[in-house]
Design a protein around this nucleic acid. Structure first.
Lengths: 266, 266
DNA sequence: AACGATTGTCTCTTACAAGAGACGTATGTA
DNA sequence: TACATACGTCTCTTGTAAGAGACAATCGTT
């Protein structure tokens, strides 16, 4: 009957200031939590379940869902009493993309890069303190390594994470990394100092390669995209089999850095 | 100094029930209005301007924008005091797309169709009582007719509109069409009865062609996409030069109907 | 048929957010 | 230098929406 897995998440994410108690919540916040929750579950969910998952009062949840459905941000899913994201969100999202040069061009670059190399390619950004895959294009390998857009992963697990944090001072980095983030899926633990060293190293070399972190079979190559001199706004990355030769890896890194540089503003 | 152009819009759109007065507004509603407003303006906008545009109190608007920015639904735009849609909306939008077969497959069909024919192709749906371009792929003509995703147009102006309303009875149709919707951009007025006849005709023939409605240079071909027997969920359409020969038009309609049928469920 | 669990709607209370407005600052322009 | 507008933050009040809980209707299970 316990829940609260998703709770801690956004509670911390959105400017973790005060927590007076657990009295009345503002409707808007509840609504935002609903959206986050759906984003986490990635599928339609019953309203009762939703209320339980957010531990929000049932009556309130019904009201809010009704309003959000009315506004088109949510839709009732096929069978009748489940809800998921609505068309409006798609439209808003497309509007965001249209207004965002980096994203629009980045998506294209990623698509062509994965077509050219045959490897899985991704565009990544920092989103509320977490590493986020903003766009990904699967490679052409028989067993391709693919990951969904919008997926959020702890920063220390990835090569991109190391680049995205380059330029931040130690305090800010520590603030962004939780204890759990340093534990890899297979149970190994990353040393915080090593991680911070990696970040510094990535900062000067201008790229980053990690091997067998999220899983044992892949290597991750990343290069920074700058939105202003020194400001890393995003990364482009390639996910390749871990047994890729050093030579090919080198070639891919060079290509990747070139494309990422093309995306950069200054 | 007048504003309120956008006001009427959503006021009517979202279940136009009560209007007690103009007393206090719920925060969530205000937030939804902000999103709608940004969707209408299609560009970043100052907070003051936003408050004026929605005629919402300034202090409230500041608070809400701060919360929405914090949640990532909005972002402060480049220069500093303007806001627009945020990354979160993009991520939610992509999640919607992933979970929506029709949309995902529809986008692909539209892209290939426009590549094959060289004409502008679109996927359209009914969204809160209005005709909405959900995805569009520009043709390869030198002067191509393109329109943005998310654009909303009065139903009577389009071929798709006639199909999307097929299956609804006269009362429901009348309820969806406002006086202004019947007036074309060039000032001509469409007769409501003619429009309803067109709908009935489109329903039986299974496609619809209109000429020179939104502008004088284009013809619009549309075919229905069914989500269940008799239920039209969307339309695929082609926008071609008005002087396209009858023969080619016929070919295109046949192709279009085929592709739309492929998208349909039953 | 009797049971518990879940769903959707409704009513009523009160804690609290929406809003009015004052304030200090940063503009631009006469 | 004054003047008029816009910006961003703060305080205080009160109208109202969040929430507790009761209710009837459906389930699936024994």
């Amino acid at each position: 009957m316990q829940d609260g897995e998703a709770l801690t998440e956004w509670q911390a994410a959105s400017s973790d200031e005060e927590r007076p108690a657990n009295s009345r919540e503002k409707g808007l916040n509840r609504a935002l939590h609903i959206l986050e929750f759906l984003h986490a579950t990635q599928r339609a969910i019953g309203i009762g379940e939703l209320a339980k998952g957010l531990n929000a009062p049932r009556s309130t949840t019904y009201t809010l869902v009704r309003e959000l459905v009315g506004a088109g941000l949510l839709e009732m899913a096929g069978d009748g009493n489940r809800v998921y994201f609505g068309k409006k969100l798609y439209l808003y999202g497309m509007a965001y993309m249209r207004g965002n040069d980096l994203l629009r061009r980045g998506r294209q670059e990623v698509d062509t890069l994965s077509r050219e190399t045959g490897e899985t390619s991704e565009l990544c950004m920092l989103q509320s303190g977490r590493y986020t895959i903003v766009h990904s294009s699967p490679g052409t390998r028989p067993f391709r390594i693919s990951s969904a857009t919008g997926l959020q992963i702890p920063l220390p697990w990835t090569a991109s994470g190391r680049l995205l944090l380059a330029g931040l001072d130690r305090n800010r980095i520590e603030a962004m990394i939780s204890r759990d983030d340093l534990v890899l899926p297979d149970g190994r633990k990353i040393d915080l100092d090593d991680f911070i060293d990696d970040i510094a190293k990535a900062r000067v070399t201008g790229y980053c390669v990690t091997s067998g972190l999220v899983d044992a079979y892949t290597k991750c190559l990343a290069a920074p995209v700058f939105s202003a001199p020194g400001k890393i706004e995003a990364t482009m990355c390639l996910v390749v089999p871990i047994d890729t030769s050093d030579e090919r890896t080198g070639e891919l890194v060079a290509l990747l850095r070139d494309r990422a540089a093309r995306l950069s503003i200054p």
